[in-house]
Simulated assay, not measured.
Amino acid sequence: MSEPLAIVPQTDGVHRFVAYVDEAGDEGFGKLAAGNTAQSHWLSLGAAVVNEENDRHLPGWRDEIMSAFVSKKNQRDLHFRDLNHDQKVHACATIATKPIGGCVISSNKITILDANELEIFKRPQHLYNYLTRFLLERITAACKRRASAEGAKASLKVVFSRRKGTDYDNMRQYLEFMRDGKEKMKPVRSIDWSVLNPADIAVENHKVRAGLQIADLFTSAIWKALEPNVYGRCEDRYAKELAGRLLKINGHTLNCGLTIIPPYSKCPLSSDQRAFLDWVIDQKKKARG
């Protein structure tokens, strides 16, 4: 299998990457606090990351998936939620063979209900922006590591899937605020601003960009591995198909290509959720063995 984050030789010493970002789950807390299953327990924000050359191949890779589905072969809008189980497995298995990197941040919203910051996270877009920060910290770091290994610099463009109720100008201002060092408390990690300029953020409709549709696969696959269904069970088959494409640092996926909030050691997990995350951790051990 190729590197999760492939590169193409450049003549100007800059490796250019594109990250397509989508989400799964919702930001709501009101019904969740009342024990209502209408709101998700988890909110996941994820990205499909490619180099500039492979960005051109994304529509063809999307079409490769769709052509296998008799009822959808002439369609060009791939939506994870519209696929049946077998189609989801096939879609994820197909993308797992492509030089695409995946990165997903998943927040266990249940843990926020008892937190002092609940009122803050109830504000529109606050949790979404919070996860965006985590996501971009990890992606910019991965792009820089990959480019630096070739003695080059890295540049990242980010394309968000248009989302109702999200103010992307507000997000740019939030990123600029961080970039300019105006936060009262210095974060443990930081977005690498040598890789990303807040001006290099775009917003597109899901149906017109194959990259956003592939980001949907990564994000929804991980979300399904963590979000309990009406029977309290989780489905990790899709995430396991894609696990090899998740970004890694020193061979480790957890807290790089897959990050959960709160961290694994502090997060209340069901047996299904813990089994999946233990499986992810175990892949490093098997690789060394």
Rank of each mutant, 00 (worst) to 15 (best):
L32M: 08
L247E: 02
N108M: 05
N74R: 15
L131P: 03
L226Q: 04
F121P: 00
S220T: 15
S71V: 07
C234D: 02
R209M: 09
L258I: 15
V14Y: 01
L156G: 01
L118I: 14
L258G: 05
S67N: 12
R145V: 05
F69I: 14
L45Q: 07
P263C: 03
N197R: 05
L242Y: 09
S2W: 14
F17W: 01
C267D: 05
F69C: 14
G251W: 12
W42I: 15
A202S: 12
L45I: 12
C143I: 09
K184P: 01
V104L: 08
A154E: 01
G13R: 02
F17V: 00
A48R: 08
M1N: 08
A154W: 01
C267M: 04
N74E: 12
A243H: 05
E176C: 06
M171G: 01
W223M: 05
L242D: 08
D86R: 11
K184T: 13
L58T: 14
W193A: 00
K72F: 06
D167N: 15
E137S: 02
L156S: 03
D12G: 03
D55K: 11
E150G: 10
V230D: 09
Q39H: 02
R163W: 02
L175T: 01
D192H: 03
V50N: 06
F80I: 09
Y130V: 03
D272H: 15
C143V: 06
L156V: 07
L32V: 09
A147P: 03
G30L: 03
A154D: 01
C267S: 10
V195P: 02
G211R: 03
V230P: 00
R62T: 05
R237I: 13
T166A: 05
E23L: 08
E176T: 15
K122C: 06
I281D: 14
A152C: 13
R146L: 10
R288Q: 15
M178N: 12
Q10E: 15
D86M: 10
A152T: 08
V8T: 15
L242Q: 06
N205K: 11
I120L: 12
G35R: 07
V70H: 04
K285C: 06
A275T: 13
R179H: 04
K184H: 13
K157M: 09
Y130R: 11
G25Q: 01
V188M: 11
R245I: 07
K153T: 08
V18A: 12
A142V: 09
H206I: 11
A152L: 06
D63F: 00
I260M: 04
D12N: 15
A48S: 14
L212P: 08
Y231L: 10
R62Q: 14
E52D: 10
T166K: 04
E64H: 13
G165N: 11
Y231R: 15
K207V: 11
D216G: 12
P59D: 07
I281F: 06
S194P: 00
N250C: 09
K31D: 11
A6K: 08
H206Y: 07
D200W: 10
L131E: 07
S155G: 06
L277S: 06
G251K: 01
L246K: 00
D278H: 07
K186D: 00
Q173W: 09
S270C: 05
A91I: 04
R179A: 02
K122S: 01
G257D: 02
N229T: 07
N51P: 03
P59V: 10
T94S: 10
D82A: 10
F17M: 01
K98P: 02
G35V: 03
V188S: 12
A34D: 11
A19K: 02
I214S: 12
G251H: 08
C103N: 12
